[in-house]
Structures are given as structure tokens and as C-alpha cells.
Design a binder for these strands. Sequence first.
DNA 1: ATGTCGATACTTTATCGA
Length: 260
Amino acid sequence: MKVATWNVNSIRVRQENTLAWLKQTDPDVVCLQEIKAPDDVFPREPFEDAGYNVAVHGQKGFNGVAILSKFPFDEVTPRLPGDDSDEQARYLECVVSAPTGTLRVASIYLPNGNPTDTEKYPYKLAWMERLIERAGALLEDEEAFVLAGDYNVIPTPEDVHNPDGWADDALYLPRTRENYRRLLAMGLTDAFRACSDEAHQYTFWDYQAGAWQKNHGIRIDHLLLSPQAADRLQQCAIDKDVRDWEKPSDHVPIWAEIAV
DNA sequence: ATGTCGATACTTTATCGA
């Protein structure tokens, strides 16, 4: 099963790019972030016509996550547990049922956290605590699952062009990276790092300042695998070519092949 | 080099978020 994640930065603006990429990469399950649309505005039909079931947890204006799946959904659950007052649409979990087995998949849009001297950074850290809590609960089931999305975390200096320039950024601060490492220490596997130790492999390049042309990128989109999923990991790749298309998102898709 | 996008409200331009 090929599981992908992509922060599209508006599904309405990126509809044609997304359909073209589906045709090219042919993923089975796709986690989307920053769809920037409420549920009833999400363009379901073109994706259904392309052969996908569609689950949406949208929001007007900002955020919003969705999951596309060639296989039927057994379960669909929006919202990350742990804070009922959190209104931001950043988490959607499902179980997809393939003929050969099932896989739990979550689409994650972890808060950016900047500027760090506002309430945004504590919100990010608290959200990470809730994600760690959820991951712990899922690990107890000892089943295959994938937590895929825009983590807004640069895990190591190898994952950014100029670490010094990011030293005070919410994506790279010690507490941010420490919380990400806690997920790994629990037993989750960073799919990309399990397949490659090559430095400077990015999933995001800012629209500004010619970041793409200069390859000033960061690796912030990740697929974290439970031990049962990691045992079946066959391949992980970043579809970098998509960043060169007309009207690109600032993120590119990343996917993992898991033998389910 | 506060350099680019996208959504929104309220307007054809500003603000916010990233």
C-alpha cells in the first residue's frame, strides 16, 4: 500500500495539480493538509471520479485536513483527543480496509508555532503532547499505523540548508525537536530516514526569496510508522518534481510503500 | 531584501497566517 502526505496549501487552487500528481504517483492513501476549505466546499467529485473515497475535516479559511483512499474507510475520526476546546481542524484519523489487510492512517497538520513569543508556540507544544498521548494509546494495540503530515518540525541540522538561520524558529527550537524525538523514542519510525541517510532532502521551499531556485528548503513533512508498519516498509520517496509545476504548493508530496 | 502566496472582509486594498 502506497501512503502519501501532501500539504497542498488550498485544495481549490491545487485541484488540478493534485489530480495530475495522483495520476503520476498512483498512491493508495493520501493525507492532505491545509485544504483551506470547509467540508461542503471541498471538491469531492473530481477525486471520487479519479477512484478515491474522500474523508474531510475542513475549516473555513485556514487549516483543514483530508484523506483520500482507494480502499473503503472502516472508521473516520476527526480531531486529536486531549482538548475539546481546540477548534482548529488539524487531525483526521481513519482505518482503510484493503483486500490484503487494514491500516490506520492519520492526516496531521501540526501547528506552525510562530511567532514564538505569542500563544502560538505553547499551543504547538501542547498539541505535540496530545499527539504523543494519542501515539501511545495506538501503540498499545500493536497494530500497523501511519501518522503522516506536515509536522512543522525540522528534526535535525541535516534537514535544513542553514541551521543557524532557523535557530530561533518554532520549527527548529530545542523543545520542538525534543518532542519529535520523543515520538521516535516511543518506537515510531521516520519512514524517510529509515530509507535514506542522505542530508538536505527537503519537502518544503518557501515561496519567498527564490528559496526553491537556491534549494533553501526544509524537511518538515513526515510519515511516522508504528513498529508493525515499519517492519513492512519497502520504500520512501519525495516527489520533488512537483515543486516545479505551474502554481505549485510550497510543499511537495512524500510517500511510503508499506507491504499491507 | 518584509522578497510570495492564499483566504477573508470589505472592498478594489488591507489584514492575517504561513
